[in-house]
Amino acid sequence: MQPALRVSGLTKSFVVHAHGDLALPVLFDVALAVSPGECLALVGPSGAGKSTLLRALYGNYRADAGSIRVRQDDRWTELVGAEPRTVLDVRHRTMGFVSQFLRAIPRVAAVDLVAEPLLRRGVEAEDARRRAEFLLGMLGIPPRLWALPPATFSGGEQQRVNIARSLIVDYPILLLDEPTASLDVANRDGVVELIRQRRDAGATIVGIFHDPGVRDAVATRVHEVLPPVTSPLASPLASQAGASPCVPKPS
């Protein structure tokens, strides 16, 4: 089957201007291709740049060079160097992202937060709400929490709200960054089941799964991400950049 996501020559480094324009290479010449029905697990040592790669695929991090192409409307859409609206369109229609952390919005109830991507696609409010409640229920969020803003939820609850929000739309491509990181066993199994359903329904999935059990349950292939070869000067900070989404702050 033809891939839905093709990456080649992807290179990314962080340049920290506060540290004398220190360049921290993270990704170098990454290539991969993922087809519908596949779930590619990114593996590698901590700090190798798995999370950076995933975020670069989503357009959240800006690639320095290379190509990230996404199959949309029966043609390839290039994301590296694309206009913001092109990336937004791909995110809107084709590519979903589950991060480890929920970005709660003040005053917005969990159920509305989850339903939002459907509403944005023009689904009737009532339908969207029903679907959101169904997913929240499946992920073990008790109904008494549905109407509350998730800012005060526990880490695991927030993460499940996040997963529900990302899975409520049948994105053809899903990027998962540790989707089960802070979940207990029962909830983890629920999420695993949802991911498998999506995969078997033909979604193209790329994910980071820290838990080997989860990885074995969902992944069809693994892709090893290796730390880039770095100068001795940069190496102590390189791992930090790989692990943290933010540029290291001046100490």
Partner: peptide, 21 residues
């Protein structure tokens, strides 16, 4: 300039990095 989350999560320019930090 760029996508909002990209500019805030992966700022390129020294001034933006300073703002975000």
């Amino acid at each position: 300039e760029g996508l909002t989350d990209q500019v805030l999560d992966d700022p390129q320019h020294a001034y933006t990095q300073m703002l975000v930090a």
